[in-house]
Write a protein that binds this DNA or RNA. Structure first.
Lengths: 219, 219
DNA sequence: CATTCTAGTTATAGCTTCTAACGAACACGA
DNA sequence: TCGTGTTCGTTAGAAGCTATAACTAGAATG
């Protein structure tokens, strides 16, 4: 199953194990106080070893965070793909919406790590753009199934000529592309406002707004 | 015009002046590397004075950031109010959308300070919720003017019973409330994704998506 | 003029990331 | 089985940060 290095030396095993434990502690710390408060030193102490030891496993703080971001992306993509597979490649938009919301609420700090304020020293490796493409692919499958008839609005014409992001779906109609973008931006709109607390004290139920936005997508 | 302390001693004058200069340098620093990299020490050095001097003006780093957030909120509210006034209390939704987008693109770091990942030690003072109410008030004015006929969807019924956030507009129909929330969440959806760079490399023009979302609101 | 209040200073504690130099344990070929 | 080399973890230390404490020079005030 492993793509590379079938012959795993015990050392590489151990090394991978430690890296995994570091990331685990990192997630715990992030869940507590957010990514900006992540401290390599604290993680090391928590693991019973002394500060600089971690630099054998991660070149620096940014590399650890980059790894965490990639894993977070991966977990969302996996959840999307699972829904797609379960629906034989034609998932309902509402199902994807539910997965997205669950994923976001499950760990808001993880959501912010991916979709919140960009961290200063970080630049997305090609990795993550590839993962985004996986997510978009599942979403586009759902959208081509659910797309309404062509309405040929100005924006859809624009999309017909700018579909690099829909690489694997050369035959998806512009209305499907538009639907996918609407899905993505509207739902992230609700989620980011909700998770940042901008609805608290307003009295309304964000889940209902979310549901209403999902509803309004196809109608 | 000043609500308190008409007799400003020269000392208070100076004090206010220094606070203002600190905030100015802080914004410069934030524009450069984001709020997480904001350093009181660096600001002090930049102003030609030594580290701890700034603690005469701000209790700690969080207090400075809180102040910056409040000012950022204020600037958005002022922009909204200006549009409302210019339109004699009935601004077009498209005009508000344009102001919001302009404000966001003008200084993305300022946008993230308010609508991005919440900063750990910060809790919104009552101030900001009051400012949010001002913003919502202008938005609701626009929405009652532009609201379509009642469609009585489930979400609008929910809103009819949960309108604390629309305090100053007791007579706004649920369809207007729903329109305001759609405006707010959809446009923030596009903006937060765009400013965080999630559309780069996708080939599409976020401004057009934004325009399309504005368009779709009332139709 | 004397007192008080305040803005700034230096020193210091405690935290962080990260580099450098060293010791000890392990893996592996002869 | 015995070197030899790689790797892990250590301590020490530089440079940066927030924040407090103690002190001094100057302005405002009675």
């Amino acid at each position: 199953m492993s793509t590379t290095g079938r012959t795993e030396t015990p050392r590489e095993r151990y090394r991978q194990q430690v890296r995994e434990e570091v990331k685990e502690k990192a997630w715990q710390q992030i869940a507590g106080s957010g990514a900006s408060a992540l401290s390599l030193n604290a993680i090391a102490k928590q693991m019973g070893m002394s500060g600089p030891a971690l630099y054998r496993y991660f070149a620096n703080r940014d590399e650890l965070i980059t790894e965490l971001i990639r894993d977070a992306y991966r977990s969302l993509a996996d959840a999307f793909i699972a829904v797609g597979d379960a629906a034989a490649g034609r998932p309902a938009l509402s199902a994807l919406a539910q997965v997205l919301r669950r994923w976001a609420l499950e760990d808001p700090h993880r959501y912010f790590l991916v979709y919140g304020t960009p961290v200063p020293g970080y630049h997305a490796p090609q990795d993550t753009t590839a993962i985004t493409a996986e997510i978009m692919s599942v979403l586009l499958d759902a959208c081509t199934a659910a797309a309404p008839g062509a309405r040929a609005a100005a924006f859809e014409e624009h999309l017909a000529g700018h579909r690099e992001w829909a690489g694997g779906h050369p035959d998806a109609p512009p209305s499907a592309l538009r639907l996918a973008l609407g899905f993505w931006s509207r739902l992230h709109g609700v989620l980011s406002l909700e998770l940042a607390g901008h609805f608290t004290g307003m009295g309304l139920d964000p889940a209902r707004l979310y549901a209403a936005e999902v509803d309004g997508l196809t109608r």
